[in-house]
Amino acid sequence: MHDVSAFPLQIAGDPAPMVSFRKVTKSYGALTVLDELDLDVKAGEMVSIIGPSGSGKTTVLRMLMTLEEINGGVIYVDGQPLTHMQKNGTLVPASQKHLRNRRADIGMCFQHFNLFPHMTALENCMEGPVQVLGLPKKEARERSEELLEMVGMIGKKDQHPSRLSGGQQQRVAIARALAMRPKVMLFDEVTSALDPEVIGEVTNVIRKLVSEHNLTMLMVTHQMGFARDISDRICFFYGGKIEEQGPPAELFGNPKKERTQQFLSAVKEAV
């Protein structure tokens, strides 16, 4: 870990950003995946991350979910440091206990759903609330059924994942993450492993979340049209940095940087 003594103990501001990356660096050996990334996401904001493969998009989400350790900088969630904790008035790398405390604010959906195959759809959703949050089973069941209803999966609540299509599994996975009542939701290429005809059922659920809930969301996606429709802001990643960012209309309609233009025209050709 690099020296983080110069970093603020907490992020101020009114309101403080829900997520802040401050000079966050991630490397695998000699390969730098993220290079001193600075990124703020406001509460309730929907930010989509686009870019060529290997640009560090997914790594941003994985670090925020604490699935990857960072090599430098600090990540803050809701004003408080996530990757670090305060000790004697300075920041030191987070302990497992601290991570468990802070991670409760974050939920994530994965490209390959990662539902628990030995549990039904309902059991998948109840698992976190019962085991981790300590909710009574009845309450967890009500909460889970409500969410399965919302994602249109209540009719299949007693099915195991192996009996569900990819789109159905992903909708259950979204319900499972929401059942933990996170403040920040992360969507990591949630439609990339889906057959084209079922992508809509998953994007519709995310649309609904955006319009009806005040969640802070970060989404890595290859669905440019979808990102343009629902995002408050688009970040175009290139080589471990944010090459360009802005409102969807601006970034898609009038990209300033040459690399953004190249990427967008390459994507357009592919469609």
Partner: peptide
């Protein structure tokens, strides 16, 4: 057991013991 199962368990904020026992 696929790596994704561990990650999903982490995303649900499970303890190490819960991950082994439940997942």
């Amino acid at each position: 057991v696929p790596k994704g199962q561990w990650e999903a368990a982490t995303a649900l904020n499970m303890t190490v013991a819960q991950k082994y026992r439940r997942v």
